[in-house]
Design a protein around this nucleic acid. Structure first.
Length: 525
RNA sequence: GGGCCUGUAGCUUAGUCAGGUAGAGCGCCGGGCUUUUAACCCGGUGGCCGUGGGUUCGAAUCCCAUCAGGCCCGCCA
């Protein structure tokens, strides 16, 4: 059974019919595709719950109340002054990293493009800006409870995380006179006010019913489970580590009077060969960039087709062919077979794959076969490189029997436009790239024997001046083959050596049409 | 130091939670499409399931140990 369906079943037993799945991300910088796993893990469980006939909501909590931790490499020095301020309260950076005037907040600035990516990938969560939850007083009850149970919570954090908390630790971090929560010390609690003094020596009070401070992360997380009635929130393995925030969150949530969701941890997505993704090291690919290369259903399939505890290598190079073609193959030939004729393992495999396909669809409930392009990535990559006109590609696919009507489906048009983008990007693998030579290379010449050289010479002669279309070119090639008296296989190999510098290639006539007669004449010896 | 995950065919892996004769895709090899689209179709090759013990009638699957790789625990998902 698929992990999402399995979880839905378990949630039904443990939590009943009304479920809330959640994700939470701090918008401290550009989002990357790693965040997509956070989102999609929860969203797929949400969909699985709906599919199981349960009532389910999916909320995406944006940690807009989290403070700016440090001046990231993409920020200018001016951001020094904003360290410790909630992300909702500071200005967005300009492209050069300097703070902008007016306009949206830092949190919204980074959130907006991510939401666009979510839209494209078919995720439509209820969005909760965490600072608003503080502003409208929904946190007040939990903050009060946390303060009243301060000692117990301190004990939990110290014991489970093994961390020692300073004496002045307090389960609420008020904003000081300048709006930063750094260097602020709590002096007294007088419900609903937390009195403080800050690093400038000033003192004041924070109303726990307004966004005048926040709970520390480990408590904040536990509190929101109760506030939103969250029954499921998969967390990254950083939170899942022993002694991590999940482990402390569970008992803290109970102290605050609520039933916590079950611990659920997902592995990270890594960029092939370069380790975990990190905004600060620049080792990252944004969701938008990923979506410009990979169709959304295939990106979803990357997550849906992997078990939660397996790390995923995201590779925008050769592995993309494999992943895309695997998806295509599955959609074209979904696993079949009745329970009787399959053994247990085969049934599990079948059900898991069918579910992965179901969950990969951009629209919930859509028929997977609507996303069928009908042609492999590899083949499309080849066509896209040798044909500059989209219409020529549709014609070719129709002729070769890949598609059954001259007009392409939307799925196919979509594939091609992403394919062209990929080919023009640095990500496209070199060995899939068709490179037209400008002259006969040494390497090519050494691979050609006398007969092949004669054939090339013959071809060059007879091809000049013919009307430049596939039929004529094809005919001319065959005439030259016959005239040269060498096997056709060798003749074609000769063409590929001359034109591409390698032994194989796409259909010669299609290739030559695109090259053009002039360029070909210069190229052939 | 504490902990987590992974290790199955050349490669990517399913199957591990609920033990019952090792599945798939890619690659590769051969053939077909009667002179090639890197397409497409058919067939075939290939695994003492990291290692060593234990439990069991029976272990890839459960338990213990061990090796290797990756990662987390300073709120980066």
């Amino acid at each position: 059974m698929h992990w999402a369906d399995f979880t839905a079943q378990r949630l039904k037993l443990e939590c009943g019919e009304n479920l809330v799945a959640a994700s939470g991300i701090t918008p401290s910088g550009e989002f990357h595709i790693g965040h997509l796993r956070e989102i999609l893990s929860a969203e797929m469980i949400h969909r699985a719950c709906l599919d199981a006939g349960l009532n389910s909501r999916y909320i995406f909590i944006v940690d807009s109340m989290d403070p700016l931790r440090k001046v990231y490499p993409f920020l200018s020095k001016e951001y020094e002054q904003y360290i410790g301020y909630p992300l909702a309260n500071i200005p967005a950076p300009n492209p050069d990293g300097t703070p902008s005037q007016g306009g949206v907040s830092y949190a919204e600035h980074f959130l907006e493009p991510f939401l666009e990516a979510l839209r494209q990938i078919g995720v439509s969560p209820e969005i909760v800006m965490n600072h608003q939850t503080y502003e409208n007083g929904e946190f007040a009850g939990k903050i009060n409870a946390a303060i009243e149970n301060s000692n117990e919570i301190r004990g939990i954090i110290e014991e489970i995380s093994g961390r020692e908390l300073p004496d002045e630790w307090f389960p609420f971090k008020p904003l000081g006179s300048d709006g930063s929560m750094d260097g602020v010390t709590v002096t007294e609690y007088e419900k609903p006010y937390v009195h403080w003094t800050d690093r400038h020596g000033k003192s004041g009070s924070a109303d726990i019913r307004k966004a005048e401070g926040k709970l520390p992360w480990r408590i904040d997380w536990a509190a929101r489970w109760g506030i939103h009635g969250i029954t499921c929130e998969p967390a990254g393995k950083d939170h899942g580590a022993s002694g991590g925030s999940f482990d402390t969150g569970l008992p803290i949530c109970r102290i605050l009077g609520d039933k916590p969701p079950a611990k659920m941890v997902y592995e990270w997505i890594q960029l092939k060969g370069s380790g975990p993704m990190s905004s600060s090291t620049g080792n990252t690919i944004g969701p938008i960039e990923a979506l410009s290369l990979v169709p959304p259903e295939i990106l979803r399939y990357l997550i849906a087709g992997s078990k939660m505890n397996k790390h995923i290598d995201f590779n925008t190079g050769p592995a993309l062919f494999q992943m895309a073609d695997e998806y295509e193959r599955l959609v074209a030939n979904p696993p079949t077979g009745s329970d009787d004729e399959l053994n247990k393992r085969q049934r599990v495999a079948r059900d898991t794959q069918v579910a992965a396909l179901r969950l990969s669809q951009v629209s919930h409930g859509a028929d997977p076969s609507d996303s069928l392009a009908g042609v492999s990535f590899r083949h499309l990559a080849m066509l896209a490189q040798i044909k500059s006109s989209d219409d020529d590609i549709w014609a070719s696919l129709f002729e070769s029997g890949h598609i059954f009507e001259p007009n392409p489906s939307n799925a196919l048009k979509d594939r091609l436009s992403r394919m062209r983008y990929w080919i023009n990007s640095v990500h496209f693998p070199d060995d899939a790239r068709i490179v037209i030579q400008s002259k006969l290379t040494e390497d090519a010449r050494s691979n050609l024997d006398e007969g092949q050289m004669n054939f090339i010479a013959n071809l060059k002669q007879s091809i000049s001046g013919i009307s430049w279309n596939e039929k004529q070119i094809s005919k001319t090639i065959m005439d030259s083959i016959n005239a040269s008296n060498i096997p056709a296989r060798e003749a074609y190999a000769a063409i590929y050596w001359a034109v591409l510098g390698q032994r194989f290639g796409p259909r010669a006539s299609s290739l030559l049409v695109e090259i053009g007669s002039e360029k070909l004449e210069q190229l052939l010896p």
